[in-house]
Amino acid sequence: MTDETRIIAAVLDGEVNAFEPLVAKYEKPIFNLMYRTTGSLDEAVELTQEAFLKAYDKLEQFQLGRSFFSWLYALAVNVGRDYLRYKKRHPPSIHDNPGHVAERTFQDTAPEDPRLTEEVQSLFMALEKLPIDYREAVVLRYREERSMQEIAEMLNLSVSGAKMRVHRGLEKLRAILGDDL
């Protein structure tokens, strides 16, 4: 029995605090996924919370012995997808929150090197334009260096579907970046 399996068994037995090591281990990748999805730190915090709470609620459905991170990531991608769908149906109005302070965005957190900032920013903006499935496929493959098998599990695809998604995602990204590449 792996440590994660033991932790999950304890959580299912009613030990709520046993869940904390899982949050500690995976909050960063999930937060970054949400940040890439929303482009906003505040929204990323909300969606990360939502993803973990959903994972906790559905923990009984997790099959012990499988990769918890793959399961969590797949669930978080769905949370991000639902959020984008909601945003599309309910575009923000100028009348909403008139006194609202501008949200913190990627530019607020980018490294200080101006050359790197520009390069990173253009890549980030290009990624933002990619549909979530393609974006996560290329990020998981090249940024996280995950295997095709893992990507397939995380995005609920077959292995050949994952390969296709990475290939097409990269092509789309190249097309968006154009000369900036």
Partner: peptide
């Protein structure tokens, strides 16, 4: 893509998540 920086989540994220959970 490999050089894409990672953003650290705020320190309040984890306690916020844990505080929202009720024992199963």
């Amino acid at each position: 893509l490999r050089g894409l920086p990672e953003v650290s989540p705020p320190a309040s994220l984890r306690p916020g998540i844990m505080a929202s959970l009720t024992p199963k």
